[in-house]
């Protein structure tokens, strides 16, 4: 229940930001607006800190400050809790970011997908979500000719659609098949998630939520309607739940041999 509580708060906060944005008509409200949003962030952090375990408390940075290089956002997926039939994370992402398909499965975008696995040697089966792994050394960023693929200071890998020319070299380079190309015109985009024909896109780790002090939609939904298999937090903070879990249990990343150091960890893979 605490998860639901926190999600409501996150939504409220998002509204607060929206309102602040849409009223940008009177010049003198800037300071008070900033103060209000920062205050809301603190409130949420405190509330969350009282009892939420699965959804780690995220520090809401002040809106006028850039993302901090001291932070490294990451995810931990517990495959023992992730169920094969469940697609709560995928549904949540699709709804949050608005990447519904156009009836052509191979050309539809897919920011996050559920992969069912069977270990060939043992026959063990399990399931897990795969999305952009937000690597420390992302090949997509290396190969991008214009620099549209970039890594934010806090480790989130994004596509700057303003300078993406749609060459798809990043899709060739990504070992995780995490990126999608938009094959047709799109309308009714979410205001926080502009998307358009001819550009490449991928999981943003819900950067708009993180900047407002929230958690990614997939993690939130996994904790609510799902099985609570996903944990979000700051990998650089030794006191964060995610760091403690990674320090305690055996975890791995997908294709660790590539030495890309993804920010998404899997337990029981």
């Amino acid at each position: 229940m605490s998860e639901n509580h926190s999600s409501d708060l996150a939504t409220d906060r998002a509204h607060a930001v929206d309102r602040a944005g849409s009223c940008g008509c009177s010049g003198d409200s800037g300071v008070s607006r900033r103060g209000f949003v920062a205050g809301a962030g603190t409130l949420v952090t405190m509330t969350l800190a009282t009892g939420v375990v699965l959804i780690a408390p995220a520090q809401s940075k002040p809106v006028d400050e850039p993302a901090s290089p001291d932070v490294r956002w990451g995810l931990l997926v517990d495959t023992s809790k992730c169920e094969a039939g469940c697609s709560a994370c995928v549904d949540a992402c699709r709804e949050e970011q608005g990447w519904e398909g156009h009836g052509r499965p191979e050309q539809n975008p897919q920011w996050i997908r559920k992969v069912d696995l069977k270990e060939t040697a043992t026959g063990r089966t399990f399931s897990l979500p795969v999305m952009c792994q937000h690597c420390t050394h992302p090949p997509c960023v290396d190969v991008c000719p214009t620099g549209a693929s970039f890594k934010r200071a806090d480790g989130i890998v994004l596509v700057d659609r303003h300078i993406c020319i749609g060459c798809r070299y990043c899709m060739m380079a990504c070992p995780y098949k995490a990126r999608s190309f938009v094959h047709e015109d799109i309308e009714n985009q979410k205001p926080h998630m502009p998307r358009g024909k001819g550009c490449v896109e991928a999981c943003t780790l819900c950067v708009h939520r993180i900047d407002a002090g929230g958690v990614p939609a997939c993690v939130e939904k996994c904790g609510g309607a799902g099985t609570g298999a996903m944990l979000f937090g700051d990998l650089n903070d030794p006191n964060a739940e995610i760091s403690k879990r990674i320090a305690t249990y055996a975890t791995t990343q997908i294709r660790p041999d590539l030495k890309l150091n993804p920010g998404v960890f899997y337990q029981g893979l």
């Binding site: 960023v141 290396d142 000719p145 214009t146 070299y169 550009c199």
Partner: peptide, 19 residues
Amino acid sequence: GRADRLIVAMTHYNFRSIF
């Protein structure tokens, strides 16, 4: 995908990219 942005390809260079 965005052939209209040829000018971007000419003005933005990521020198780590072989492309």
